[in-house]
Design a protein around this nucleic acid. Structure first.
Lengths: 122, 122
DNA sequence: TTAGGCAGTTTCCTCTAGGAAACCACTTCC
DNA sequence: GGAAGTGGTTTCCTAGAGGAAACTGCCTAA
């Protein structure tokens, strides 16, 4: 009876689904959210800083993910002309538009922990 | 000089990073966001409905992802006693707490499309 | 001069996420 | 009696995501 109603929604969903696909393909992989989350907090960080902050990541993955993020104009890479050459990674202005997404994700994760381990435990 | 400042932040980040890890591990895989996004819009949907709405997914993956989501109390599965047996999948109350996350994700994806194809194109 | 820090690249290997297709059981429509 | 719809499970296969470790190259401090 109401099966047609679902089909009618399809056009509406299509835009949403496409949007979700887009976002997830850009933020694909195990580490993008972590890197972005760290850069939101850390502002400007070097390669080794990120390697230390992003728990468990290795040099190959960090390098590759940063390249991906740079290609999508979410992260900027600046080579500083310091004594030993250093590199500064930071969010671009555009990358900062992801803050709400990452923050919602983090917020939910915090609530999830509470619901699993109880509010007493922090 | 200021390198110590980064180290000081670590404790703060740790909670955040853990939260992001938790969320992403629960929503891991290619399809969870799509399924949840569809259920947010569609309210109550059957297996075949989801198979049609979630573009590109196959029966095996849909089945597996739904089981994952059910195990994490995000989705409920109700067998209806109808003539040909039907099943209703819907978000649990807890699953609905994910709406802000999914919605931010979708919102960002929409803006992303605009920035790529221009505002003229919808 | 050698050890250590920065910033990666390259190679090699493994594991598993995910797709295609076949199959199952049950019902109802024609 | 067979086609079609519901709701899956099982098997088989492979592309590629991701880890470990070694290597590069440059600079500095002890």
């Amino acid at each position: 009876m109401k099966k047609k109603a679902v089909v009618n929604d399809t056009a509406v969903c299509q835009v949403r689904m496409q949007a979700i696909s887009d976002t997830m393909s850009i933020l694909s992989g195990k580490w993008k959210f972590h890197i972005l989350g760290t850069l939101i907090e850390g502002n400007k960080l070097g390669f080794m800083d990120l390697l230390r902050e992003v728990n468990g990541i290795g040099t190959k993955m960090l390098s590759k993910e940063l390249q991906d993020l740079e290609m999508n104009r979410l992260v900027s890479r600046t080579v500083m002309n310091t004594k030993p050459i250093t590199v500064e990674y930071s969010l671009t202005e555009y990358g900062e538009t992801l803050s709400p997404v990452i923050n919602e994700l983090a917020k939910w994760g915090v609530e999830y922990r509470k619901s699993v381990y109880g509010d007493t435990q922090v």
